[in-house]
Amino acid sequence: MPHQCTDCGRTFEDGSKEMLSGCPDCGGNKFQFIPADAVDESVEANSPGDPPSRGSSAGAVSKAATTVRDWVGGGSDEPDRPSDRDGPASESPSGEWPKSGTEDYDTPAEKAAARTSDEPTASADASTTTDTTADTSTADTTADASPADTSTADAQSEAASTTHADPDSDDGSIHARTADDEDNAQASARSDVVSPDELPDGTATPPADASEAGGGHAAESGAATDHDAPGVAGPSPDVTDDRHEAADPADTQIEDRPDLDELRDELNQQFESIKILNPGQYELNLMELYDREEYIISLREDGRYVIDVPDSWRGED
């Protein structure tokens, strides 16, 4: 599963050009990427929703992940466009949880997250458990930055998590916006003209599921993955909270307000019969000129009119 749509979970072979114009199923344009070395360790390649056939704890892990993903995925359907963009970004880390953590660590944290998914405390739990202050602050930064809905903020947070985590195991878990991603894009473009064998190793990977890949990783030694857990697990509840914020329509309303004022101004201006742009430059509203009873007989450059009203005709000349 080199590429997976973060909206609907559809997977694409590496070098697939289908996704160049967005996910054919849901139209999503955010994809996660799992390089070969990470996926190699995964046991099976199941679809995201499938229950794993591993040990009970691993099962719990991916089950929790699935729950969270479902919840996140379900949530991301509700909000409008901008928050929708945020949704996938927040979803992807949650998909990785099981992969980066050990059973001991992740299972409670994720169970907690799954149980109390509606509460922001889930993130607090996760970071407290891991005692990694640097990562916690990273997660906090993410929380601060992401309300702006900028994908850069998400990218940074992911990059930050990567920095704190073991590079090898992390390469597997980090998708989206690392340098890898660009290579992949290039490879994807190049796949038009070259055979798949010539493409970089990292991009030529067998399909696999994120949570399953996580299950594989869970078997790894704890040191790296322990470290990994807060970095990756921390952000997701936070980001999820952000997503809730983003889903709030107030966001868009604030943007709309100035437009409304502009519109009102414009409407008011349209009711003016003669608009003096500059001395010697005028715009005329013919309908208004025609409709009005009083009659503008001379213009002053300070914007005043001299008008004559009906029944005030004087007989000079």
Partner: peptide, 29 residues
């Protein structure tokens, strides 16, 4: 109405063009 279109005609300086354009606007009214 824009006085600048009167400036295309040699016989008008800016003041005259502005005056004409004001009168033209009054004329439309």
């Amino acid at each position: 109405v824009d006085y600048e279109e009167f400036l295309d005609y040699e016989e008008f300086d800016q003041d005259e063009a502005v005056r004409r354009s004001r009168e033209a606007t009054e004329g439309v009214a």
